[in-house]
Design a protein around this nucleic acid. Sequence first.
DNA 1: TTGACACTCACGAAGCGTTACCGTCC
DNA 2: AGGACGGTAACGCTTCGTGAGTGTCA
Lengths: 250, 250
Amino acid sequence: METTYRTQAFARLAGVTVRTLHHYDRIGLLKPERSQSGYRVYTAPHLERLEQIVALRFLGLSLKEIREVIVRERRSLPAVLAAQRRMLESRRHQLDRAIAAIERAEAAVKAGQPTTTLLSRIIEEIAMQEQTEFMNRYYNDAAQTALEERRKQWNPADQEKVTEEWRAFFRDVRAVLHEDPASPHVQSLVDRWTELVGRFTGGDPNICSGLNQVWADRDNWPAGMKQQSQEFFDQEVWDFMARARSARKR
Amino acid sequence: METTYRTQAFARLAGVTVRTLHHYDRIGLLKPERSQSGYRVYTAPHLERLEQIVALRFLGLSLKEIREVIVRERRSLPAVLAAQRRMLESRRHQLDRAIAAIERAEAAVKAGQPTTTLLSRIIEEIAMQEQTEFMNRYYNDAAQTALEERRKQWNPADQEKVTEEWRAFFRDVRAVLHEDPASPHVQSLVDRWTELVGRFTGGDPNICSGLNQVWADRDNWPAGMKQQSQEFFDQEVWDFMARARSARKR
DNA sequence: TTGACACTCACGAAGCGTTACCGTCC
DNA sequence: AGGACGGTAACGCTTCGTGAGTGTCA
């Protein structure tokens, strides 16, 4: 003597569309009874199950996953939900990155940086984020917060200036590759090198240590980062500087 | 004399798949040159455009939207991005709700509430969120924060107890519908009513005002909420209580 | 007879992944 | 001549929305 519903009434009751019920029926997720004329007939237990389906869909599970959890308890619900939570958190992280990219690009353009258009700023911002995320694997917590502070002080113009100084430094080193690494002239280049690195580390030993690790692992950098610093991947220059530094030590 | 790339090399360079390039070519989003043999030939300008496409895709724009922005500047980029930011923020809000639902359901079950299973707790949690969001349209900021505090003190058992008290109150009122609204017995019911309402408002005038608005607009409640409080939608009881209260005033 | 509602196909949509089959280049 | 790489064509995946055409009657 229980209340029964036909498709439309049941759909309204549960807050879904008729088409959705048809779909769930077809894929075997929620199969109602049938009247002799072939009409779908839903009852209270169906409502309960549909509520479960809707809830899990709200959590972002696919219908296939829902079926595995509900129809036959093939998979443990707590485990699935824990996994789902991690997925959602990572999606949220991605969303945050996208939102931040738009916001910061808008802010930068509004603050009047006519050299780059909004779209270019966004591309830069995304690249920055990628680099930051990747590099954070090498820096410990102290270094990460220190770098965070540092970045707030930076702006694209500063960045461009520093890059230019490194470029000049490399030119100067390449010009003296034939000289004695211990010569005063070359040793002054070691000082310049120390100064340039110190400009980035700010003397922070945490940052310094992380930087060494980043550089040591440069073969594994993502393509975008590699490409961007390709001009500084001159093994000959680095070898020469290494010899110059060890000459200094003695 | 510019560098050219064929499909695979170009794909690696830009960090996308060959299939993606084929797709963009077919839908007219990024059309490379062709060699005599029909091979796709990409050059630097193509790379620039592809970077823009990838960036906008990162922000969640559809390929159609990207085409409208990039291929022919039919739509203003700043406007599109502002709209996109709002979309992303609303998606983020949805994600937060899903994550919160899982977290709180897990916590509630772990804290030992054997009456309800994890899945049921999630359904309750989602319903709660819906109600909260909907009701917040009626409460001002002060009332919302006050209610927020209140909810932290609540637990399902309390909720059940209060519901039971309202149920008893309705039974008692229905039993005296034929009596004089001004009789001492009925007037004591008015006191009980005041007390029950006060239990929810906590005497806060902001909450009180919001509650009145919520109740006045109960025809527009979402289906789920209506259904849940359906047992208290007894017009006869409310009319009788109104008469009893106006009898008290005189 | 006529609404109102029910049923079963079946295409469409977004963004590629994934064969399948065949030509080009070195 | 073989293997790496290029091309096109076309189905698959996901979750229903949206008709089209037709039957039922709570």
